[in-house]
Design a protein around this nucleic acid. Structure first.
Lengths: 201, 201
DNA sequence: ACCTGAACACCGTTCAAGT
DNA sequence: ACCTGAACACCGTTCAAGT
């Protein structure tokens, strides 16, 4: 009996990405708590020990999901930040829409991305991804500072303030403490408050 | 053989609170992932089925921990908010210190408190606790509005902006994306940015 | 009322063995 | 190289039975 052609080398070609894809589906539909390696293997039609070939343990699979999430999110953010000649408010609003949009579409994934990590192996990679996200913010802030559109002071600190404001919304949506659609609808006003402050001018 | 005195009715008096106490310790030291009902029972010296008497399932215990967390946090926040005759910035800074202080001391618990709940039974109680927290904020905002210390507009929206800003810091600390001590040290400046905005005046 | 012990149906992880 | 099957040490939950 001849070997199957290259398109299906052993069982169906790429168990690793099949696992990731199936895992993200489960994550979205039933939450992290419902994610089981054995069930994933069952759904894909492979033995329960097979996932161990591609991920050293369950945490490694979760880390890979998070890493993947950062890559997609950072692409979205980079696109949104690429408005070099727009005024400050338009740029920040664009970033805010991109970030909150991602949060609303992938709340469980976002929770995973920001979950407390203990594994020192992959946490370095994840930290790099977070830094990349924040760097996109910092660049917008630093640009705006040069033009005098933003208060002087440590750009890191100002970025933290802006990022915390948006991340807080995202986290409150993910935790169901805020309504997603309502928050998106009020996002422009939120950015205006962030830029102008709560004190009357 | 006579019954033991009231102080140790069957095994040691109050399994429910013993479970909660032991669970919170594990939560703090090893994280939610390491929390097992059977291990809790083992540590306390009771059969593995005993917890089922006091919590219908594991989620019910987690919900009870979260509820407890809200009660303590809301006490802290209420104390911090009780500065009626102070100026705006002092009151908000006080609230911020209380909230971030709680977040830094109980990061795992906070994560649990804001985790996505599915159980409709206890989620109503938890939602009430969140509302109570937010109400403390709203009152400070509404007071300040009356005095003209804060921009006009829907107090709910303004509260959301202030709460998101602080919650974002808390979540970033809990997720190890920000350094706890550094963030606490810069908290007054953060509040100033929140009140005055990122745009120069 | 409160707890035990056994039972059931699951897990994650490892490891010799297969192809 | 990649996967299987059996084994191990755990889970959460239920339920008759004990005190």
């Amino acid at each position: 009996m001849r070997r199957m052609p290259r398109t299906r080398p052993y069982h169906h070609g790429d168990l690793r990405s099949a696992l990731l894809q199936s895992a993200e589906r489960t994550l979205r539909e039933k939450g992290v708590g419902a994610l089981s390696l054995r069930e994933l293997a069952r759904d894909i039609g492979v033995s329960h020990a097979a996932p161990g070939r591609h991920f050293k343990d369950k945490q490694a699979l979760l880390d890979a999901l998070a890493q993947d999430g950062y890559e997609r999110m950072n692409r979205d953010l980079a696109t949104a930040a690429a408005l070099p000649d727009q005024p400050l408010e338009a740029r920040v609003t664009s970033l805010a829409r991109a970030y909150l949009g991602f949060a609303v579409e992938h709340p469980e994934l976002l929770e995973l991305m920001f979950a407390r990590k203990h594994d020192p192996d992959s946490s370095a990679q994840l930290a790099a991804a977070v830094d990349h996200s924040l760097h996109l913010f910092t660049r917008v802030i630093a640009d705006a500072q040069e033009r005098g559109e933003i208060v002087q002071g440590d750009p890191e600190r100002i970025t933290t303030a802006a990022a915390a404001s948006l991340h807080g919304l995202a986290a409150l949506i993910a935790g169901c403490a805020l309504d997603a659609q309502e928050t998106l609808a009020g996002l422009d006003e939120h950015v205006r408050l962030l830029l102008n402050g709560l004190r009357p001018r």
